[in-house]
Every structure is written in structure tokens, then in C-alpha cells.
Write a protein that binds this DNA or RNA. Sequence first.
DNA 1: GTTCCGCATGAATCGATAG
DNA 2: ACTATCGATTCATGCGGAA
Lengths: 292, 292
Amino acid sequence: MEIFTDIYLGDSKEKLKSLSDNSVDLIVTSPPYADQRKSTYGGIHPDKYVDWFLPISEQLLRVLIPTGTFILNIKEKVVDGERSTYVMELILAMRKQGWFWTEEFIWHKKNSYPGKWPNRFRDSWERLLQFNKDKKFNMYQEEVMVPMGDWAKNRLKNLSETDKIRDNSKVGSGFGKNISNWIDRDKAYPTNVLHLATECNNKNHSAAFPEELPEWFIKLFTKQNDTVLDPFMGSGTTLIVANRMKRNSIGIDIVPEYYEMVRKQLQPVELYLLEPKVKYEKTKSERRITVR
Amino acid sequence: MEIFTDIYLGDSKEKLKSLSDNSVDLIVTSPPYADQRKSTYGGIHPDKYVDWFLPISEQLLRVLIPTGTFILNIKEKVVDGERSTYVMELILAMRKQGWFWTEEFIWHKKNSYPGKWPNRFRDSWERLLQFNKDKKFNMYQEEVMVPMGDWAKNRLKNLSETDKIRDNSKVGSGFGKNISNWIDRDKAYPTNVLHLATECNNKNHSAAFPEELPEWFIKLFTKQNDTVLDPFMGSGTTLIVANRMKRNSIGIDIVPEYYEMVRKQLQPVELYLLEPKVKYEKTKSERRITVR
DNA sequence: GTTCCGCATGAATCGATAG
DNA sequence: ACTATCGATTCATGCGGAA
């Protein structure tokens, strides 16, 4: 079976209209937060955020299959010493739009931005909001309850001794870098708290999330040959992971530089010759890339 | 200085009226969650939760000093496969009432209740909402500093003497970062994610939280001889911790059994003879208990 | 080939300074 | 007065070069 990867350059609100109804199994995305990333995305004022997002989520509701899931990564910022409320207002508005708010996962960012202030500690968590069209949805819990797969084995054999020690010292549950827990264990029961560090190895994108994040949700909510959508693909982490996991994927971004970057990364043959470290050669021959 | 502990039996909304304006330095409480614990509190329907809570928070706003803090432990429950939104509606309503929503801490419950559901994982976190009357409030950050990650210890202890000298000179010339500041430091400021286990040995109270939770906030937001209030004291954890930490405390509960339980636990002399393990004898002679 | 160390760098926030 | 920009603060992580 052939896996496709479609990427679009343009405004999500418009480009999404070209997708068919009920054609996507999972949406995983991290939209620009309010008043962040002004240089690249222009920055949306917190007061206007809900109005800006609702037309997009309306399209997402249309293209998602009834048993599909929408994972939204977002966090409100502090404005004038107080937390903004636009995320809560967005949840309330999306429920009126027809979404079910089924769960809120917590992404605990172990390496949060440093700093010290007289009345505030470092913000080290983000919301991962789960929305569904229907109260019955596909969920493959076994896939994430058995983390001792090839992935973990590969990781473990390459772990240096200091890494093992460092990981041992960490307290944590669920999944993530607490790999040492898995050595003597076949099963880990995940919870709705995810412990991951943000990735520092920049891909020329300021806000890339770690590959483990989309990987976990793709495992949990899709099977092979399903289709994953990221309407704010950025550096394309979600698409690359989906491709490696043999899921079809669709990505949209309004920034030409990101679009170009993802396009180049997904071109299999040419870059394979130029790039010494090609990560995803296993699925290379199966991929079909469409650029529009 | 004498420490007092006042406990009241009755409805918080009414009993709070007997407290003076600006008389409490910190409020830490975990109110009955909507539709939970029906047998003891009668259960408040999610749709009526905000209306039920606002008269109480109005009193709390009155009795709190301007530089005081209100910590509200709450988590919406899942109703018919979907998360209720009453917590978000409550935050929005309390802001209109005059509260500032300063921060949301995450309490990560490391040993959350085990279980498996077809479309849901174990819920292992709760919200700890911080509200303030004023954007300037008392906060004693040094009191809750935590040991630094192994990173610093392993690296800094191996700093050569020349490195130290070089770094010192950098400070003088204004270049580089002041590494020498870090040499004697093994502690770092915490983040807004708290990792605590729930207490297994509950005290006949269905929703007792671990002592570390009120302890952390009492350390962070009060000093000795300040006054801590818990308008839903339950088994009295907040009061007991406050007393041990030499803070005055006020507790209210509508359930006679909890009231009696806390009263007995706080009576110093009689119980001292009966109970082999008295935890708080250090402050015993200083305590004054008022029962109304 | 490992292990160790130096260093850059974040979806941050506040307070001061400038227009 | 009100907004825009800038510097200071701080710590976990990964990478590259050195031992």
C-alpha cells in the first residue's frame, strides 16, 4: 500500500476547504499561540483569538471522520501579571460549534524556559486538548501501553551510561525519557500526564515539538494507512513522524520557508544522495509526495 | 506568640460572614467537586456549581488581605463521556467578581487511582488555581526551592580552579555569565508543576489531599503567625499542617463528623494521653483552640 | 569507541526606558 | 497616559570537540 504526503502552502482556513468531508482520521496541531511568533505568523491578539480560530476548527470538524480525534496543543500566556483566558473561551466556543471536549492531557516540559520573577515560577506545562466529533472514537490503547517495542529497544541500546543514570534519577510516569523504567518492564500504564523535553536541535523553527508527542498520539488514535492532518505544520514534525509510521499525512502552512523546508525534507531520492543522515529510509520507497 | 486554631461547624457561605475584612493571609481549599461525594455534601450539579460557589468566593475576597492568595484545588469530572466546563466558567465568573487569575499550577498525582477504560486513561493531575486580590502579593520563593538536577552538581564540582578564576574575572569585566554564582548553589526555583503522591492513608475523608500540598503553599505564601483559612476543611489537613508550621488557622465544614474529627485531633491535652503518636507536640503548649 | 566538558539556546516574564 | 522595545534573569538539554 502506498503512503501519501500532501503539503499545501497557504491559509489553513482556505486550503482546508479543498479537503473532502470525513477524510481525516486524526488531527494533531500546534497553532501559533496568541501574540507569539509575531515575526513569522503576524501574531493574533488574545481578544481576537477565538474569532480567528473558529472558522478553522469548523473546517476541521468537517474533514474529520466521525470516529476521529483532534489534538490541540496550546497554552495561554501571561498578560499584565494575569493569565489570559482565551484558551478557556476557545473550548467553550468549540463545544457550541459541535465538538466534544473529551480530555485534557498535560504536557510537562521538563526543560522549560528559565527565568525568575518576584511573583511567578517558570511555566513548565502546556495543554493538549482532545476534541471529538462523537463520544465513540477510535483508540488503540494497547499501542501505547506496550512501549517496549523496537523503538525502545533501539533507544536503549544506544543509551550511554550517563544517560541511564540521569534517566534513573528522574521521577516520572507515563512515557517519555524515563526509559530505564522499561528495562525490567513490559508494560507501562500511561496516564494523561506526558513528560517530555522540548527539542533544542532547532529545525529553523522556533516552536518545534518533540517527535515523541505526535508519535504517541498517532499510535494511540490511528492505525496504518490512516490519514493524519496538521493544519499548522511548521517544520513538519507531525508529517515526518506520520510518514515513518506508515500513515498518510496532510500538512498546511502559510509561511513559504517552512513549506519549502518540509517539501525538501520529504523529497526522497534527491536528498538521499546529498544528505548523509537520512532517517527514514525504511519507508522511502513507499512514499508518494504530492505538492500543491 | 500564641497560635490559634478556630473551627466552625456550618455552611461556609454563612460562617464566613463572621470573619473580619482583610483578616486572612492565605486560603487553601479543595471544595466538593460537582456531583461528587453525594453522600456527604449532597452533590452540586455541574450546571449550578458556579452559582453555588460565587457567594462563597465573594466572602473569601472580603476576608483575604490585599496581598494574600487564594489557592483553589479543583478538577472537572467527566460527565457522559465529556469533560464538564464548570471550572472554566467559574474562573471567568470569579474574574468578573474582582479576582485576578494569576496562575494555574498542575498537581501531578504520581500514584493516581488505577483503572482502565475503553476511551480514557487514568486521570493523574488536578488544577491548583491561584487567585489574588491584587497583582502585588506576598510570595516567599526561597522557602520552596528544590534540589537542582544532577546536571549542576556533576558539572560544577569538577570546575577547575582556573575556570573559577576566569569566570570571576569575567564578572569584573562585564562579560559572560556569572558561573561563580552557581558554585555554591545546589537548589533551583521550582516550576508550576508539582509532583506529589496522593495520600493512601486517608482519614475517613474521601478526598484528603497529601500534607505536602498545603505545606508547599503555606511555605510559599505565608510566614509565621500569619493566618490560613480552609472553608472546606474536611479532615483538617490544611489546619493541622498550618498549626505545625506555626500559622494561625481557621476551618469550616458543614459535616458534623468531620468537624468532630478535627476538633478531637486538635484538642491538645486529652488526646495526648490517649494517643501514642502525637505528631505536633512541639507546638502543643502554644496552641489555643477555639470551637464555635 | 567512550566519556566528559563547554557552550548555545529556548512558544518566558518583568521592569525600566524610550517614543 | 499608553504602547513598543530591550536587558536581566535562569536551567535543562543536545551537540561538538577534547581527553
